[in-house]
Computed example of a mutant assay.
Amino acid sequence: MNDTDMTYHPYAILGEDRPSRWLVTCDHAANTVPPCVGSGDLGVAAEDMARHIAYDVGAAGVTRHLSELLDAPAILSNFSRLVIDPNRGEDDPTLVMKLYDGTIIPANRHVDREERDRRLNAFHRPYHRAIARLAARQSNSVILAMHSYTPQLKGREKRPWHIAILHDRDSRLASPLIARLREEPDLCVGENEPYGGHLDGDSIDRHAVLTGRVNVLIEIRNDLIETEDQQRCWAERLAPILTETLAKTGL
């Protein structure tokens, strides 16, 4: 990064000194294109940069409110997943997307290994170093990864789930949380929907599964968290459920 980028930072940390064992992460918090990438422009239309292809709509707001309610630190990325996806391993072929849900990403068309490595060093790696540092602050940290998903991909069926819990190798917290959420009569709760819960090298794999930390990944359908009020309401609903469920597991 050059001198003109000094005001840019690839992530934000909230409440670093909060005492809770929870650590709330938001890998796809922002649709920011840093100044050193295409002068801040990927060549993607503004309406597409406002869609799920660029970030997890609403997830940052839920993360902020949850971190306050849980009295926990939170870390949020500050670069679009179209720049480089922080929820992918460094050798994942979808790390830098050239086409996503029907939209071509012009600035990524000719990304080579050198440019990929530059983006890894500028954005992806600093973000993950910060997560690792925060997660290590307590011996019993619990990783809570917040995401959102679009109600419908182009040409695909509508997704009925209001909320989904993703897991694979570690279900210690995920399974009881799914059971608890399914007690809520107004919720359609998905398990590993609308996609599977594990990719080698993804954030949960890297900071929780491989380190043995208790963890859960929550996905909320993004049309339900478009506004500040909706984000706050979901956080207020989830915080006591998360606290109760973790306590009951004895983890």
Rank of each mutant, 00 (worst) to 15 (best):
A136R: 09
A136L: 00
A136V: 00
A136I: 01
R137K: 15
R137N: 07
R137A: 10
Q138I: 03
Q138G: 04
S139F: 00
S139G: 14
S139M: 02
N140Y: 00
N140L: 02
N140M: 04
N140W: 00
S141D: 05
S141I: 05
S141E: 04
S141T: 15
V142I: 15
V142K: 01
V142Y: 01
V142P: 01
I143F: 10
I143K: 05
I143E: 04
I143G: 04
L144V: 14
L144F: 14
L144R: 03
L144D: 02
A145D: 14
A145F: 06
A145P: 07
A145Q: 13
M146H: 09
H147Y: 09
S148M: 15
S148F: 13
Y149T: 09
Y149S: 12
T150S: 10
T150A: 12
T150I: 09
T150D: 09
P151T: 15
P151Q: 11
Q152S: 00
Q152N: 00
Q152T: 00
L153N: 08
L153C: 12
L153V: 10
L153H: 10
K154G: 12
K154M: 10
G155K: 13
G155E: 13
G155L: 15
R156K: 08
E157T: 14
E157Q: 15
E157Y: 12
R159A: 01
R159M: 07
R159W: 06
R159N: 03
R159T: 01
P160G: 08
W161D: 07
W161A: 05
H162T: 09
H162N: 15
H162W: 11
H162Y: 13
A164R: 01
A164I: 00
I165G: 00
I165A: 00
L166N: 10
H167L: 00
H167C: 05
H167K: 06
H167T: 00
H167P: 01
H167M: 00
H167D: 02
H167F: 09
D168I: 02
D168V: 01
R169G: 06
R169E: 06
D170I: 05
D170R: 07
D170Y: 04
D170S: 05
D170E: 11
D170K: 04
D170N: 14
S171I: 03
S171W: 04
L173R: 01
L173K: 02
L173F: 14
L173Q: 01
A174R: 04
S175C: 15
P176H: 05
L177Q: 07
L177C: 11
L177S: 06
L177D: 05
I178S: 03
I178A: 03
I178D: 03
I178F: 02
A179H: 09
A179I: 09
A179Q: 12
A179L: 08
R180E: 15
L181V: 07
R182S: 08
R182A: 11
R182F: 05
R182P: 03
E183Y: 08
E183W: 06
E183H: 14
E184H: 11
E184I: 10
E184Y: 07
E184W: 11
E184V: 11
E184C: 12
P185R: 06
P185F: 05
P185M: 08
D186A: 10
L187C: 12
L187R: 06
L187W: 13
L187K: 09
C188Q: 12
C188K: 12
C188S: 10
V189Y: 07
V189K: 06
G190P: 02
